[in-house]
Amino acid sequence: MAEPEHGITTGAVARRLGVSPTTVRSWDQRYGIGPAVRGDGRHRRWYPADVAMLEEMCRLTASGVPPAEAAHAAQRRPSAGPVTTESAAVPPSESAEPVGRRTPPTGAPSVEARRAGPGSGLPLGSVRQECRGLARAAVRLDGAAMEGLLQEVLAQYGLVTAWEEVMVPTLHAVGRKWESSDDRYVEVEHLLSWHVSTALRRAAVTGPVTTSSAAPVVLACVPAEQHTLPLEALTAGLAEQGLPTRMFGAAVPAEALDAAVRRSGPAAVALWSQARSTADHALARHVAGTAFGVRGARTAPLVLLAGPGWLGRAPAHGMIRPSGLREALDAIGRLYGRPAGHPDG
């Protein structure tokens, strides 16, 4: 299925990058970071090369480069052709995309192996062969095939690699497809998300039974944040290592999160924010400052600012901003005396 000929809207681009449409328009007006081609009526329509330029702008500004300099550098970046799922999923410094990729088992397809062939229906780019099968099953609404494929990749590659190199690229490919197709394929994204969630929860349940009395890890989406899949992946990864977790899910009210932290006395708290509009820095500081334990030996949890919503501000004391699932697992594992790079299956 061919890509749409008219690009995608500014709103769709903004949602993908985790910034406001006003910011995207401002970059265009002030610095010339705009689409090469405009539709009828001068409306902005963004094509893959345009989106790649915006992603570079986001990456540079998030790392502290002044906007004018970032715009100049982004405009001069070498043309990389169509944007792949791995570059377009989440800004490079944030959590959903691969960091420190795991080397596949002997005989496994290369990460850079095959491009999605004709009939895949989704713009997958250079990703695993398994992504092509999962994408085709999603487009066919073939739930049984998706379930089987997800079980296979989890068993063969382990949780981290399955999440970063199969699940995330396919999910983002589906998201881009409906954004650029007049909201078609919404049913494909919903069904795929449900099966990915099911596979992750199954992996969490089948992990080693935790009998330790060690402090747990609390995982929650900030208030108004509905995206839970990355936290479900982190929950499954922790369960795979036999670490205790308490997963509270989507849009946890501030009062409920405070109560959960105080009642469970966690070693770490992972807070997910998909967009800057949902990132609650005051709440994160409050959680990081919540101390518990006996007088003279009180401790506070390590707060993980997970997700692209936390970009743009340096983490405060007692907080870290992991760049991916593996880094988050390593940081939490160290709290329990686990070595970095603990095997994921």
Score class of each variant (00 low, 15 high):
A173W: 01
P104C: 11
E5K: 11
L141D: 06
V160W: 01
E165P: 00
R184V: 09
M319H: 06
G175P: 00
E86I: 14
P208E: 07
E97D: 05
A328S: 10
E147V: 05
A73H: 08
Y31L: 08
E69G: 04
G11N: 13
A239N: 10
T61L: 11
S197R: 15
A254M: 11
R176F: 04
L149Y: 00
E112A: 08
G133D: 14
Y336W: 08
A215P: 03
V83H: 01
V65S: 07
L304S: 00
L60W: 05
A155R: 14
E327K: 03
I33D: 00
A282C: 07
H281Y: 08
P78T: 14
A251Q: 09
A233L: 04
V287N: 07
C221Q: 03
W27P: 05
T85P: 06
A233P: 00
V90I: 12
L154Q: 04
T22L: 13
A52D: 13
E130R: 00
A220N: 01
T210R: 14
Q226S: 15
A73T: 12
Q129E: 10
G11A: 13
V174F: 02
E94K: 10
A260M: 07
G175T: 09
T299R: 15
Q129F: 13
A260E: 11
L325N: 00
L54D: 05
L231V: 12
T103V: 15
A256G: 15
V261M: 10
P105N: 13
A73Y: 08
W272V: 02
W310A: 11
S273E: 07
M146R: 02
Y185W: 15
A145S: 14
L171V: 01
R201C: 11
A108F: 06
G265L: 06
P92R: 14
R25P: 02
A173H: 02
